[in-house]
Amino acid sequence: MRLGTRRSALALAQSGHVADAVRAATGRDVELVEVTTLGDVSREALTALGGTGVFVSALRESLLAGEVDFAVHSLKDLPTAAPDGIALAAVPVREDPRDALVARDGLTLGELPAGSRVGTGSPRRAAQLAALGLGLETVPIRGNVDTRLRLVTDAQVDAVVLARAGLSRLGRLDAVTETLDPLQMLPAPGQGALAVECRADDAATAALLAVLDDPVTRAAVLAERALLAALEAGCAAPVGALGEVAEGDDGPEVYLRGVVAAPDGAAVRLSATGSLADAEALGRRLAADLFEAGAAELMPERPSGSGADPMPSGPIPPTTQPGERVP
């Protein structure tokens, strides 16, 4: 079986993990096929590239062309619009979805002096850092994990914010000086999760890959991505979301938190709960509440072709959770 993957160290680590799981579960040989994507070769900011799909399109083209049998993506990179001819065969068990701080001198976020330079290529992270009111300066950066960590060791910035899951998969958790609480910073929708895709007409491969699927992770990220889609936002938008599955009065339920933030620190945060079976509807309902609370005023104009699904037609019932506009 040929597994399509990006060439970065993190992508190869993620794909290697999936390849090992497929070998163990099916006894099949798996060969990694490296594919270069636009996001890998361009040094422009993700927002300038359109954000959504820049790490995904080339892999999907190789899949549809029959050059690979399945592909592995960071799920947060996937456009929310369903692609023609491609099926999401599995969402494996998720790594820790939270963001992590890597700072000079072992400092935590609260210990960084006002005026400290914090590197991030994510509008979501930059906006939520501004919302904390700590007086930090955010610096736009690009590059792989090692490149970003070197910015701290070379004193070009005082700290960087990265996905904890990526550091874990690369064996670099020793660099983390603080794992950020979701109360401070909600992660990107789908962060920490992987997406395993195959051709929609390849039932045999889909059946083999289905053993990797984790229903709890799939329900959580489905709610998060439904919120993102309903907001008509791409993966580079200043939107954070985190779905967590816990036991409720009537069985397992998804507790979903969402935030839309602006560069000046204004933010709208809301939460809602719903059953696993209604995870997608839960995400749409919370998006409707975010709109009602003023989120649309904080979001930049969406670039054409972002790949986000449109807001579904028809009334969406409100959640019962109160919202709060955070200045």
Rank of each mutant, 00 (worst) to 15 (best):
A233W: 00
R169I: 08
K76E: 14
S304L: 15
T320M: 10
L282R: 00
E34C: 13
P182H: 09
P123D: 10
E67K: 11
T177F: 04
T320S: 13
A233C: 10
E34P: 05
L173D: 15
E137C: 08
L270R: 15
A272L: 11
G190N: 00
G190I: 02
V118P: 05
A226M: 00
V221I: 14
A230I: 09
L180G: 00
V211Q: 00
E280W: 04
L132D: 06
R150G: 14
G243A: 05
A89M: 02
L88K: 02
A206K: 03
G27T: 03
A210C: 02
A204M: 06
L167Y: 06
P252G: 10
G265F: 02
G16S: 12
A126C: 03
A58C: 09
P317Y: 06
A25I: 04
L112H: 08
R284V: 15
L32T: 07
R199L: 12
E324D: 12
G27V: 09
T177C: 04
D278T: 10
T120M: 05
R148E: 10
V56E: 00
A203H: 14
R104W: 07
G283M: 05
A237Q: 03
L78V: 11
V41K: 00
D84V: 12
G305Q: 10
G143Q: 09
G166T: 12
R98L: 13
E247L: 15
R199H: 11
P215N: 12
R98T: 05
L38D: 08
L298W: 08
G248V: 13
V260T: 10
T36K: 01
G16H: 00
R225Q: 14
A13V: 06
A237G: 08
P322H: 09
R218Y: 08
D105V: 07
T205Y: 06
A21H: 11
R94G: 12
